[in-house]
Amino acid sequence: MDNKRYTLEEKIKFLDALEKKGTVASAARSMGIHNDDVCYRWARKKDELRAAYSLSRKPGRPVKQVRRRGSKIPLQDKIQCIMAIDEGMSIRRASVEFNKNLASVQSWYRSKEELLALYYSQQKASVEKDSSPPDNAWEVQMAKEQADEHLVKRCKALAKENEYLKDRVMFLEKLNEILRQRSGPVKKKKSSKQSACALSKEDE
């Protein structure tokens, strides 16, 4: 079976061949297409296909480019998503705002430390490689300031996380102390019962 993906132009060429040849099978053979089911589907939708083709050929109208599965996403886009999430945006919202796959955004955020390290190393390498003329010095300074600003935000976020963990440990310690206090009287009651039994036996 022919699993090839065909462009809109190839479908229109098939429809032109169909008008000349008269049958789907002969038109498909002339185009080298071995899937008659696909060709019959095109023939049934010929009006829609021709309308879409004529619309795409209008001057000044950009043709929509579909990103194929598996295409490489720029590191800059990944970093923008990560920074937005660090600013408080949810991962699901970031996937919608940046038009990215939810699973991909989750994967980027899980490996954000590696991605940020790679991003800043590339930025540093590009700055060192570029012998910036005086007119572009402000761009280099801005890039450094943005990197420093992100590092400050990251440090603040880590400090907050550290405070949370400290509070968590204190809570668990208090909870453990409460549980110990509650379990104390139970043991005393058992011992008092045992002593009462012993005294009754002595009386006998």
Rank of each mutant, 00 (worst) to 15 (best):
W138F: 15
S191M: 09
A117R: 14
E87V: 05
G184M: 12
R168Y: 10
R154E: 13
G60I: 06
L179E: 10
K144I: 15
S30I: 01
S54H: 08
H34W: 07
K187H: 07
D148A: 15
A196S: 06
A103L: 11
S195D: 11
C81K: 03
K64V: 12
D130F: 15
E145D: 15
S26R: 05
V152W: 13
A157P: 02
A27Q: 00
A17F: 02
V24M: 01
E161N: 11
D2R: 04
E87N: 14
S104I: 12
L118W: 06
E149Q: 13
L49D: 01
R57W: 02
K20L: 10
V186W: 06
W108M: 03
S121A: 13
K100W: 07
L115P: 02
L115D: 04
C81D: 03
Y119I: 06
V169D: 06
K190Q: 06
Q76K: 12
Y164R: 14
A51M: 08
P59Y: 04
N35I: 01
K124Q: 15
Y6K: 00
K20W: 04
K187P: 00
W108C: 02
K58W: 04
T23A: 01
G70Q: 01
H150N: 07
W138M: 14
Y119W: 13
L179K: 13
Y6R: 02
Q123H: 11
N162K: 13
S30A: 09
D167F: 08
D37I: 10
L102W: 12
K20T: 11
D148N: 15
R41M: 05
R180M: 11
V63W: 05
M1N: 05
D130K: 15
A52N: 07
N101A: 13
E163N: 09
Q65L: 12
L8G: 02
L15G: 00
G60A: 06
G22F: 00
A198W: 05
S71N: 07
W108I: 02
E163A: 11
L18G: 00
Q106K: 12
E10C: 01
A117D: 14
K124F: 12
K190N: 04
I91S: 05
Y40M: 01
N35H: 03
